[in-house]
């Protein structure tokens, strides 16, 4: 298998002229509009022979100054006979819904549910849109860039971060563990005089 092969990306581009083919690090992908997401998936399976579902994932679209608002959704499927992979991407704005492709490949269902709960994406047409990994009581979407690791604020980091550091030396400014927001976010427990 060639992951994200240029050959299949070129063929999808022919069938779907509105898509944009991009390549980097020897891997190619076709960028499509959210409205064409389902069409691209159906074309990949029926015309390009991508019978094998591989994975679907999401990430922050990574615009500087605009973190946590736009998200990229990635799909990788495989043509098992040609042993080639096809990568398709789309970008969702804060109001966009991701059309479900669980009807094209049943295996996409869990991946979509995971992406939805981790990034706060809205799914359209997902047969079982319930949470998958997170409990129902969980608030927020933990993989978003704007998600604050609140548990690390309210609970002091166990162990010493620096040699010689101890909680009995309040004069020394404590180093914040990774992922903990700056003091403007709110009070923390170690500052609480109780």
């Amino acid at each position: 298998m060639t992951a994200a092969s240029p050959e299949l990306a070129a063929r999808l581009q022919e069938l779907l002229p509105s898509g944009v083919t991009k390549a980097a690090f020897g891997q190619s992908w076709v960028q499509v509009e959210p409205a064409e997401w389902h069409t691209a998936a159906a074309l990949a399976r029926d015309e390009l022979g991508c019978l094998m579902f591989d994975w679907l994932g999401a990430e922050d679209a990574g615009r500087p100054g605009d973190l946590g608002r736009r998200h990229t959704v990635l799909l990788h499927v495989v043509n098992p006979l040609q042993q080639r992979g096809l990568s398709v991407r789309t970008e969702l704005g804060p109001e966009d819904e991701l059309p479900s492709i669980a009807g094209v490949w049943a295996g996409a269902a869990w991946h979509e549910r995971e992406a939805a709960e981790m990034f706060g994406l809205a799914l359209a047409g997902q047969p079982e849109p319930a949470r998958l990994l997170l409990p129902d009581s969980f608030v927020g979407h933990p993989l978003r860039k704007d998600f604050v690791l609140a548990a690390r604020v309210v609970r002091p980091w166990p162990g010493g971060l620096e040699p010689g550091e101890s909680s009995s030396a309040p004069s020394r400014r404590r180093l914040a563990p990774p992922g903990v927001p700056d003091p403007s976010w709110g009070p923390r427990r170690e500052e609480d005089p109780r």
């Binding site: 591989d54 994975w55 994932g57 999401a58 990430e59 922050d60 990574g62 990635l74 990788h76």
Partner: peptide, 21 residues
Amino acid sequence: GELGYHVVSDGGTRPMRVHVR
């Protein structure tokens, strides 16, 4: 089976995203 890493870098010293298949 297939264990895959989709790794995204923004050019920094830390990953932007690591998605595991």
